[in-house]
């Protein structure tokens, strides 16, 4: 087959490059080694003002070749424009595998590109490997993570897959000297771009404390948190522990938590050192998002909660009674040390 090599479509964010891009580069290097592939792992980055910082970062994370597409039009994600650019790049260079983060942009871009190229796309994989024939085997969750299935695309190239941020976890710092950095000109493509969708701007949510997916400690609350006051105590506990607050659907519906705090298949996948679930019963789609946590502590009134089956420490109690005691206990110890 003429298609060769693994591409990672990296994503520019307000503060640099999204972490999942680095996770994908580490995975791409692993796949390359596993399959004994020759072609370099190539990072493709679309954005604006892509200076040396970006290529250095991508190289450090494992890119062996870099294609930068730098243009003011690419400042914000626009599915039509981004897909048109990638389509012409792919048709020209013919990679075998394309990996993207299953971010908001990636989840939209991958299927759009897949349809344009008439090839298969595996959505939000939790793992991937190469089989004996060298085809990509993408492990994809279904039914809220209850079932895992292998997805293959053997007759079409490239094989496209998106991966949820945080699922692969590892970011590796590679020590290598130089890699070719190419700047791809898109003037011709833009000339043909119909641009029926145009971005006007993007507003970032104000982040409180540590981002959920980077926190070492996550305190998450669910249906069993019965009032806003108890929810605020839960936030206090997270602050005392220096952690982040996560949630399931009910606190979000109550308006106590934000969409960006939701853990699960329709939210974020996390792998903190410690996860403390309060009043969370443990529906499959939530468990799918927190199963990789180090120490799992669960507090729930209902002794039959499924979350207890996936917990290291189980406490059958009302979160409302334990919360103030924990906060008090932790703060007291803190003062003791300082005095």
């Amino acid at each position: 087959m003429t298609h060769q090599g693994i591409w990672v479509v990296a994503e520019q964010t307000v503060s640099g490059i999204s972490r999942v891009s680095f996770e994908l580069l580490a995975k791409a290097r692993e796949l390359k080694e596993q399959g004994g592939l020759q072609a370099p792992v190539t990072a493709v980055l679309l954005g604006e003002n892509l200076d040396d910082y970006y290529s250095a970062k991508l190289m450090e994370a494992g890119a062996e070749a870099i294609i930068l597409v730098d243009h003011p039009v690419l400042r914000y994600f626009q599915n039509e424009t981004y897909a048109a650019v990638l389509k012409s790049l792919v048709e020209e260079r013919q990679p075998s595998i394309i990996l993207m983060g299953a971010t908001a942009a990636g989840s939209d871009l991958a299927p759009t590109l897949g349809a344009k190229l008439h090839t298969g796309v595996s959505a939000h994989c939790v793992d991937m490997r190469l089989n004996e024939e060298g085809h990509l085997v993408a492990v994809v969750p279904a039914f809220g993570g209850k079932v895992l299935g292998d997805i293959l695309c053997t007759n079409f190239r490239p094989q496209i897959a998106t991966v949820r941020p945080g699922i692969l976890g590892k970011v590796i710092c590679f020590m290598h000297k130089q890699c070719p950095v190419e700047r791809f000109d898109i003037a011709d493509i833009l000339a043909q771009d119909q641009s029926r969708v145009k971005a006007l701007g993007i507003t970032y949510e104000e982040m409180k404390g540590v981002p959920l997916e980077e926190a070492e400690i996550v305190v998450a609350g669910g249906f069993g948190i019965e009032s806003k006051e108890i929810w605020q105590q839960l936030e206090t506990l997270a602050a005392v522990l220096g952690g982040a607050v996560g949630c399931t659907r009910p606190p979000l519906d109550e308006g106590w938590a934000k969409e960006s705090q939701m853990i699960g298949t329709s939210g974020k996948s996390i792998r903190p050192k410690v996860y403390i679930g309060m009043g969370i019963s443990g529906a499959t789609h939530h468990i799918c998002g927190m199963k990789d946590a180090g120490l799992v502590i669960s507090i729930n009134k209902d002794e039959k909660s499924p979350i207890f089956d996936v917990s290291d420490i189980r406490i059958t109690a009302d979160a409302a009674t334990i919360l103030p005691l924990l906060i008090e206990g932790l703060q007291k110890n803190e003062d003791d040390v300082i005095c």
Binding site: G114, G120, V137, G149, D150, C153, D309, D312, I313, T316
Partner: peptide, 19 residues
């Protein structure tokens, strides 16, 4: 273009301790 291979139900059980 895509087809499904093996499927499985992952076991996530942990041997918990109750406080």
């Amino acid at each position: 273009p895509t087809w499904s291979g093996d499927i499985s139900i992952p076991s996530l059980a942990r041997k918990g301790q109750e406080l």
